[in-house]
Design a protein around this nucleic acid. Structure first.
Lengths: 343, 343
DNA sequence: ATCAAAACTTCACGCGCGTAAAAATTTGTT
DNA sequence: AACAAATTTTTACGCGCGTGAAGTTTTGAT
């Protein structure tokens, strides 16, 4: 380390006894140079710990090695968990993931897309806000940058969508609940932020019809991303009004259910499938906290690992295909019913 | 928009009738040019929507406008919430925040620091892993990059530390609990990841001594960042063994408490301060979910808004001071006791 | 040993912008 | 109107690296 003058690739090339263009090639793809050359470079790399200047690298490169990851609401552990897995896979594949959260705000999502554009990312994984999203802005973005949507789809946007099959989620819970007890009512918020909510309601209705049961949708006031509080307030109101037509409630998602369970607890309503309980509650998502609710929550869970793996694999494939697919792909994964104590 | 040829600052300067160096100055600091010039540029900016090339910009700039934000575990809503506020403030101040999560892994933290270095950030906000952190690596990083630590401090590292005053947290809960009922036992994990845990235990011990009460620390097995499960398992074990010397449990943090409450529920132990309850449980942090536990959790809460505001203000001050303070600053904010149903 | 393919070296240019220096212009003050 | 200060323009260089073209060396198969 006596020679600290290794600042540029020029210096480093000289120190390693390889020409700069070849060193440059190496950093672009270590496998693109001869084995012996690679060894020499990597030996030098250990001796001098030089790192190429990111800004200079990306200035002229056609595509960078950046991958943008955008989620609607990072404070939701569901997204935090998915991001964790996705980040890891990107890094392992030699990319640099940049993480952004729209924080539930339309303007923020637009800004993020705008900034991301100038980062010239190789590809982007976007979980859009949904109803709040600026559709034209997203469409324009997807035209310019290879993008895979996940979590919630927007008709025709992005080169691919990877998500969970809402019908699979709901059919499993509805089937289980109606088989083992009273028919379920569907609990949701009035203006869901996310299109999955609508699909789940539709799935509930169609499933009830198929089972020849009378459906019942409970819609509670509320907007935004504070689902737990909405579920709690809605729950308190329903319980006070005695507004539950059956003793089984199926919540649209786990965060609503967490709030609903809190309301039940406050009101002394015993939730569970055990003897002496007043109410059964089930839900969808497999939220990381769903096993710590009181009682633990019966839910249809996303297959986090499979979904996130497929998301990144699709993006890598898209990048290798030059950023375009022949035809928009859409992949949905089924849910896995997790039976716990609440229903 | 007929002239789409605006690709470079050169083009844009020509189109706006201003010389390129002046335009460059404008993008560095809009206030550094004459009022009339600024107007002309901003008018042109609307007509052509040109945006300077980030990579070319940062290549020669002494300091970029990037700010790195590193948290130990983003799937913890506590950090997600803090990050949300910090991000917003950075953006409002004209910086570009980049968010990273160490995901509880030592190696990941090291890698992030390494990558961040080459992003030449104007400053970095670092919430270190704590016990797991590679101290020398962090120290070296802080020497090179203006860094403010938050959440958990590491002796002497960074130019400043901003966090919460653990003594304030614990003294309030201990005082409240012992005044209104049985003396509290302190519930913690064996090998806490975070140094705050140790400070809280010490605060508990010293507070109990001052109140002339016999302290009792319950340490449960467990390591890593799955606090809820650790709390739950530990709780189940304690309840099975009848290992609680008093009917009041003070958890080191809310996530442990969430798990502990789940254990109590499973075992049929009624938690709360109301008539007929078996156990009181309180905790520290003011976790976003603490109001939705069953029962809702009495806790000493961080002052999120104040802490995060002070964190970013300190960093901005540091950046303006050229990256160094005369003397390392350390600011601690007191907690606010939130009384709910659990104790 | 022979030869074509593969990999490397040398040379050179340019990416888009920061920034310094000197000259020209505008501004604000007396 | 005169002049210094503030600002802008002109000119020019360089940042660190990607990348192409042309020539040279190495490789591996015959």
């Amino acid at each position: 380390m006596r020679e600290q003058k290794i600042r540029t690739m020029e210096d480093f090339a000289a120190a390693s006894g390889i020409s700069r263009p070849t060193v440059s090639k190496y950093f672009n793809d270590p496998d693109s140079v001869r084995r012996s050359t690679r060894q020499k470079i990597e030996e030098a790399l250990e001796r001098f710990e030089y790192r190429p200047n990111i800004f200079a690298m990306n200035q002229n490169r056609r595509a960078t090695k950046n991958i943008g990851i955008i989620v609607p609401y990072l404070a939701d552990p569901f997204f935090a968990e998915i991001v964790r897995v996705i980040e890891r896979r990107c890094i392992d594949a030699g990319f640099s993931p940049s993480l952004f959260s729209s924080h539930g705000e339309r303007e923020r999502e637009i800004d993020i897309l705008d900034n991301l554009r100038s980062l010239k990312p190789a590809g982007v994984l976007l979980a859009p806000l949904g109803r709040q999203s600026d559709k034209p802005a997203i469409e324009a973005f997807c035209r310019d940058v290879p993008t895979v949507l996940f979590d919630s789809s927007i008709e025709g946007m992005g080169e691919a969508f990877v998500g969970s099959d809402n019908y699979s989620f709901v059919s499993q819970t509805v089937e289980y609940l109606s088989r083992t007890g009273d028919r379920p009512c569907f609990f949701e918020m009035m203006h869901p932020a996310n299109p999955n909510a609508n699909k789940r309601r539709d799935a509930y209705l169609s499933m009830m019809q198929r089972l020849q049961l009378e459906p019942h949708v409970l819609r509670v006031a509320g907007e935004g991303w504070g689902f737990e509080e909405i579920g709690r307030q809605g729950g308190l109101k329903l319980l006070a009004e005695d507004g539950l037509p059956t003793n089984t409630v199926l919540c649209s998602n786990d965060r609503l259910a967490i709030g609903f369970l809190a309301a039940c607890y406050e009101k002394g309503v015993r939730v569970g499938r055990a003897e002496g309980c007043d109410l059964r509650v089930a839900s969808h998502d497999g939220h990381p906290f769903s096993q710590f609710t009181c009682p633990s929550l019966t839910t249809s869970a996303h297959d986090y690992a499979t979904v996130s793996e497929h998301v990144v694999k699709t993006l890598f494939r898209l990048i290798e295909s030059g950023g375009r697919f022949e035809k928009r792909e859409e992949t949905l994964f089924p849910a896995r019913l997790i039976m716990r104590d609440s229903a």
